[in-house]
Simulated scan of single mutants.
Amino acid sequence: MKQRNPFKTLGHPPKEVPKDLKESVMREVEALKLLTDMTSLFTKGYGNTMGNILFQPKNSNEHKTE
């Protein structure tokens, strides 16, 4: 006896999603995208900034007396 795969029929035929549910999901997706964009702005530059602060080469002009 062959069993039917229920996942092959999932989403067929496509059904329309209620408008309020679709808007709610899209707002949440936009908020998550904004959050990930802001996070990447701070985390990508953080390593370079800390590296520049901590491992800054000493300027040879600092100790010169004129």
Rank of each mutant, 00 (worst) to 15 (best):
M1Y: 05
M1I: 00
Q3Y: 01
Q3M: 03
R4G: 14
R4L: 14
P6A: 08
P6C: 08
F7P: 00
K8P: 01
K8H: 07
G11A: 01
G11L: 00
G11S: 02
H12P: 01
P13L: 12
P13N: 09
P13K: 07
P14I: 00
E16S: 08
V17A: 14
V17G: 13
P18E: 12
P18C: 01
K19S: 11
K19I: 03
D20N: 06
K22S: 08
E23W: 04
S24G: 09
S24I: 00
V25R: 15
V25G: 11
M26I: 04
M26P: 01
M26N: 08
R27H: 11
V29Q: 11
V29R: 10
A31M: 10
L32E: 12
L32V: 06
L34S: 12
L34C: 09
L34V: 10
L35E: 15
T36F: 02
T36C: 03
D37F: 13
T39F: 04
T39H: 04
S40L: 11
L41R: 14
L41K: 12
L41C: 06
F42W: 06
F42G: 08
F42L: 13
F42Q: 07
T43D: 09
K44P: 01
G45Q: 03
G45S: 03
Y46P: 05
Y46N: 12
G47Y: 06
N48A: 10
N48R: 08
N48L: 10
G51W: 11
G51K: 14
L54Y: 12
L54W: 05
F55D: 14
Q56F: 07
P57A: 06
K58G: 12
N59D: 15
S60R: 10
N61A: 03
N61F: 11
E62S: 01
E62A: 02
E62V: 08
H63V: 15
H63S: 15
K64F: 14
K64R: 09
T65L: 08
T65C: 04
E66V: 14
